[in-house]
């Protein structure tokens, strides 16, 4: 029974856009795509926070850089996703490498603050790029092309996003069980002991940070396509806070924590926005209730057998 949950969920996710189209609710296909993209970005952050034990407060920077990577290349005529998306990932990974090299020398609240500082620096840097839209953001002329697949239709883009998300979640599972994942678990619990055992702790944490940054860059590349533009707000600190909130809400260190957090948070926003002008009041109260009564997030409430 347990083994069937994941394939069934995946099948339902594949069927969703066709169902929406058949019932005349195509609008929600884009909404679902957006949720999955945020889920991917939050999953990437969960790798750093939940698996690597590093509370990073600047993840939106890598998310936003991925978006700008695609948008800037598009402005220069590069429309192929086969080139632009890997380039966006590389840009985000490179930024994460630089930020990580400096930040990982600090601990605890200082790590939180220094990652925040670097993210804000990148935010202001992007803001100053007047040739690339400045504070208005940089629109995309079209979606990227991913021959032979069709990204032009909302359903096509939804399915590609779903495939990327599913692949990332599968990779996360492999990674958690790998030697690298075991080493991260050791570092999370007792960093000094890992060093005494001879592990290159700094390098392992840096690798974790860079992988998380790279995946966030991929999410950003998808976001630019979904949104039709790269906006500086994607890099602002409240966006980093939002991603962190998704991770904590869903479940820190749980493989589906980031996705659950994105689905619940964005879903709640959408539902409340339908009935009131003051949706954020409800969202805030809900978050406060979760952190008060479910300290391990929503995933922590799932039956024991379903946890990693």
């Amino acid at each position: 029974m347990k083994k069937l949950v994941e394939p069934l969920l995946l099948a339902a996710a594949v069927a969703l856009p066709f169902l929406l189209a058949a019932t005349g609710n195509e609008f929600y296909t884009g909404m679902a795509t957006r949720v999955m993209i945020f889920g991917l970005a939050a999953t990437a952050l969960n790798l750093i926070v939940g698996y690597g034990g590093m509370v990073a407060f600047g993840h939106a920077a890598f998310f936003g850089l991925g978006a700008y990577g695609v948008a800037i290349l598009m402005q220069h005529g590069v429309t192929s996703a086969w080139i632009a998306w890997p380039a966006a990932v590389a840009l985000a990974a490179l930024a994460a490498l630089g930020v990580g090299l400096v930040s990982l020398r600090t601990r605890g609240v200082y790590f939180i603050m220094i990652t925040l500082a670097f993210a804000q620096m990148l935010y202001y840097l992007v803001l100053s790029l007047k040739n690339y839209g400045g504070d208005d953001g940089l629109p995309l002329a079209n979606r990227s092309t991913l021959a032979p697949l069709d990204l032009g239709s909302d359903t096509g883009f939804y399915l590609v996003t779903l495939a990327v998300l599913a692949a990332a979640l599968f990779a996360m599972k492999r990674l958690a069980a790998s030697r690298f994942g075991s080493a991260l678990a050791g570092i999370r619990q007792n960093e000094t002991r890992m060093e005494a055992l001879g592990y290159p702790v700094f390098g392992l944490k840096l690798a974790c940070f860079v992988i998380g940054g790279a995946v966030a860059g991929l999410a950003g590349a998808l976001m630019a396509n979904q949104h039709g533009m790269a906006s500086p707000n994607l890099l602002y600190w409240t966006q980093s806070g939002m991603l962190l909130v998704m991770v904590i809400l869903g479940g820190v260190g749980h493989r589906y924590g980031g996705l659950i957090g994105a689905v619940v948070l964005l879903g709640l926003e959408e539902v409340l926005a339908g009935v009131t002008d003051h949706a954020n009041l409800g969202v805030g109260l809900f978050l406060l209730a979760v952190v008060s009564f479910a300290p391990r997030g929503i995933a922590g409430l799932l039956p024991k057998g379903s946890r990693e």
């Binding site: 492999r174 030697r179 994942g181 075991s182 050791g186 890992m194 390098g203 392992l204």
Partner: peptide, 26 residues
Amino acid sequence: LENVRLAVQSRARDWGSSFRFWRPAA
């Protein structure tokens, strides 16, 4: 057991490094 296995895994000279991201440690 995993405590000791992690200590065994630390011997990069015998097994190679811990920068192995895909193959299950088990």
